[in-house]
């Protein structure tokens, strides 16, 4: 059963830019909340998680867009999942070998990239219907949006939680707000960021 091709008609640079803002996975679509809330205790953790996820997303989109006409519609989700899992394993083993400290800090959340819903979402919505070049741009755009969101969230939580950003002291003599490192701080920060993004969107 051949799935209908719904090729995107945007200008090519829009495929990248839309992921940063209007289809930002965190701030506009609120997808992938598990890593967003769990690992953003520091800016570095957020950035590494963002990079690992972007790698998986881009590689998967590449493969899926290449084989999009060979995959029968009934088994497409299973196929996407297997491809995602393959690249997650690559990312997990790479982090373990080269950056053991980061791998330890991210803990089980690197293998859990498999279940990150916007990766599967991009395959279903975009890569399985569009040519390879556009799919890569789309994946890179959404991935960049994810990196931006996680690094911002991590920076704010690290700044308020310890007075540092990326391990560098920003506010000397800061009295740490322990709550910002705890899960409650993630929910509070995310809520305020989404509210701020909505407020900016409304003034447009």
């Amino acid at each position: 059963m051949e799935r209908r091709e719904e090729v995107s008609r945007r200008p090519w640079y829009q495929e990248y830019l839309k992921g940063l803002w209007e289809e930002n996975p965190i701030f506009r679509m609120l997808l992938g909340m598990c890593p967003t809330l769990a690992v953003t205790t520091s800016a570095l953790n957020g950035l590494s998680m963002g990079l690992a996820t972007t790698f998986v997303l881009t590689s998967t989109s590449l493969v899926v867009s290449i084989i999009r006409k060979l995959v029968p519609g009934q088994v497409r989700i299973a196929t996407f999942t297997v491809i995602i899992a393959t690249f997650v394993t690559v990312a997990d083993l790479f982090l373990k070998a080269k950056f053991p400290a980061i791998s330890k800090a991210l803990g089980p959340y690197v293998p859990l990239i498999v279940v990150n819903c916007f990766i599967l979402g991009r395959q279903e919505v975009f890569a399985s219907k569009n040519p390879t070049g556009r799919s890569i741009l789309d994946a890179l755009g959404v991935g960049s949006g994810f990196i931006f969101a996680l690094t911002l969230l991590g920076s704010i939580r690290e700044l308020l939680g310890s007075g540092e950003v990326f391990g560098h002291e920003v506010i000397p003599g800061w009295h740490p707000w322990v709550v910002m490192i705890l899960p409650a701080g993630a929910f509070l920060t995310l809520g305020f960021l989404v509210a701020a993004m909505n407020a900016i969107e409304r003034t447009k």
Partner: peptide
């Protein structure tokens, strides 16, 4: 509750 979590 916020202060309790922030400054135990």
């Amino acid at each position: 509750a916020f202060l309790m979590a922030a400054f135990p």
